[in-house]
Structures are given as C-alpha cells and as structure tokens.
C-alpha cells in the first residue's frame, strides 16, 4: 500500500493531482445536474443547482476549516468538532425547542436562526481563546482539552433537556441532531456563499503564513509570524466555516478528518496551496458523488452521512494506530 502510494506520488505532481481532482469534481457536478433529469429544465436546474451549491459550500467549508485547524494545532487527528462546536449546535437547537416549543422553532426565520447560531459559536470560540491566552500558559493543547470538557458539558445539558421534553418535540430535535445531506437548508445557500467567499478572501490574504505555522510555534515566531494574532484570526475563520456547514447540514464529525488526511496523502506535500484545494475537491467529490449515487442509483435517501462518518471513523482509527497522533 505504502509503495503504491509512493509510486503514484512520484508520477503525479501536486499540481497535476489537483488538476485531476478538479476534473473529477467537475464531471460529477455536471452529472449531478443532468442525470435522470426529466421534464421541465426550468424547474430541474434551479432546484438541483441550489442543492449542488449547498453541497459544494459545505464540502469547501468542512475541508478548509479542518485543514486550517490542523495547521494551527499542529496535529493531524484533530478536527474543529473536537472543540465542542457540534455539541454547541445541538445545544442551541435543544434550548430553542425547550424554551419556545417545537412550533416556534420550526417557524422561526431561518436567517435569524442562522445569525444567532453563528453569533453563539463565535462568542464561544473567542471565550475559549481568551481563556487560553489570559493565563501564563499558552498551550493549544489546553484549549483543545477545554474544548472537549465544554463539549461534554454541552452534550450533557442538551441530554438533560431532551429527557424532560415533550416526546413529539424530541422527535423534531432528533431530526436536526444528525447530519443530513438530503434536507439541506437551501434557503441559506446564498447567504452561506457570501460568508464563505468573505472568509476565503481573508484566508487568501494571510495565506503565506499557513505553511510557516506547520513548523510549530517557536519556528513560526522565529520567522516573524505574529503568532497570537494570527492563530486567533485563523481560529475565527474556522469558527465561521464550521458554523456555516453545521447550519446547512448539521454536525459532521469525521468528514473533515477524512478529506484532509486523504489530501495530505494524495498531494504528498504539506504546502497549503495544494493541500487546501485538494481537500476541498475531495470533499466535493465525496459529497456530490455520494449523494448522487444514493439518490439515483440506490434510490434510498438517508445514509450518506452514515457512510461518510463510518469511513472517516475508520480513517481516524487507522491514523491513531499509525501513530500520526504524536
């Protein structure tokens, strides 16, 4: 396996690899728009287009956030969800239903809901960051540990509310607690697109520091990176991206891990100018391709997230066993 990877890597330069992945992603996107499209194109194209757009946004947001998060933590088995972001998402959902009832939660303006979710998540990450840099310690591992503990707190709190809630309303929340790529919240797609573009613009402007950050904190400071400020900014970008993808499809835990690590393996270099596009394209291929196969070939409509999480989880275990966790 390792030999195979090495020989493939020698033949495909990182640039060529990204090119190939773009080709596959493009073909899949076209197929997604056209396969079995009967009837009125005027209906089919916008309908599928918005769905495709949402999937692409989610794929990009998950890939970029995971790669950047792994860069600032200098660790390849961490994902943003380990910081309790998905747990916070579930907690917000639960709290809304718990306090205002299921009807209110279902009828509230989606933009408002999205704004509140985004706001809560950003406040959460800024607080975490303050915590990390206020004391004498300045360890990202501390931050991650705090994230895990707080994640558990969020999960227990929503678990408690779920136990005393009306069973009908419980069913409503349950629906939102798991990632679903079928019922993408398409109304938000254009708002999400705008946000993701803004985030990308900022990431593009500071793009040159990403590679330097992989050398570790000390070397990054030696090379003149204003470390604290830069990491804070990147963490905020990650937060926004996670909020966008969670709002669109719900929490996905291992998906980012899967595509980021596949990207590292396929391009064979740590340079972000290749890794980020490769990870994003792999994510698009997984989501769009997987969704299409499930919808058109198997004609059953629920399991993409399960498959992705299953494969991602396996990858996680393999990475742990390989000792990539160091």
């Amino acid at each position: 396996m390792a030999d195979l990877v090495m020989s493939v890597r020698r033949r495909f330069t990182p640039g060529l690899m990204v090119g190939i992945l773009s080709g596959i992603a493009l073909v899949l996107a076209v197929l997604f728009m056209t396969v079995e499209a009967r009837g009125n194109w005027g209906f089919v194209l916008p309908f599928r287009g918005v769905k495709l757009l949402s999937l692409v946004i989610v794929a990009y947001a998950v890939a970029l956030s995971t790669v950047l998060f792994q860069t600032i933590t200098n660790n390849r088995i961490l994902t943003p969800s380990i910081m309790g972001f998905d747990a916070l998402y579930v907690l917000i959902q639960t709290t809304v239903v718990f306090s205002f009832g299921g009807l209110a939660a279902a009828t509230v303006d989606p933009y408002l809901k999205f704004a509140v979710e985004l706001g809560a998540m950003m406040i959460f990450s800024v607080l975490l960051f303050r915590l990390m840099f206020s004391g004498a310690q300045r360890s990202l591992h501390l931050l991650v540990l705090v994230g895990i503990v707080i994640g558990t707190l969020f999960r227990s709190t929503s678990g408690f509310m779920l136990r005393i809630i009306d069973p009908n309303e419980f069913a409503m929340i349950q629906d939102q607690m798991f990632a679903s790529f079928n019922s993408v919240h398409s109304q938000l797609a254009f708002l999400a697109l705008g946000i993701v573009c803004l985030v990308s613009l900022v990431a593009w402007r500071i793009g040159h520091v990403f590679d330097v950050l992989t050398l570790g904190r000390d070397n990054a400071i030696n090379l003149g990176v204003p470390y604290k400020r830069t990491v804070m900014l990147i963490l905020l970008l990650v937060t926004i991206l996670v909020a966008v993808s969670t709002a669109l499809v719900g929490p996905v835990t291992f998906f980012g891990l899967l595509v980021a690590n596949l990207a590292y393996i396929l391009v064979g270099t740590a340079r972000h100018r290749y890794v980020i596009p490769a990870a994003a394209l792999l994510a698009v291929i997984c989501l769009v391709g997987g969704q299409m196969v499930l919808e058109r070939v198997f004609n059953f409509n629920s399991a993409l997230s399960i498959i992705i999480e299953f494969v991602g989880g396996l990858m996680f275990i393999v990475l742990l066993l390989k000792g990539a966790a160091r």
Binding site: Q70, N74, N75, R76, G207, H208, D211, V212, T214, L215, G216, D218, N219, L223, G224, Y264, G268, T269, A270, R271, A324, R326
Partner: peptide, 24 residues
C-alpha cells in the same frame, strides 16, 4: 523541533527566507 508535516530539507531551508519573501 518536532513537526507534524513532512518536509524535504530544501523546503525547510527555504523557510529561512520567509521573513524577506513571505513565501515567494
């Protein structure tokens, strides 16, 4: 100087120019 990514010697040495060239 532990790091999580794989770098070649040339890549690493090139980083020494980052303060001047910012990656280019």
């Amino acid at each position: 100087n532990h790091m999580s990514t794989r770098l070649t010697v040339r890549d690493l040495v090139s980083f020494g120019r980052y303060p001047y060239s910012k990656g280019r």
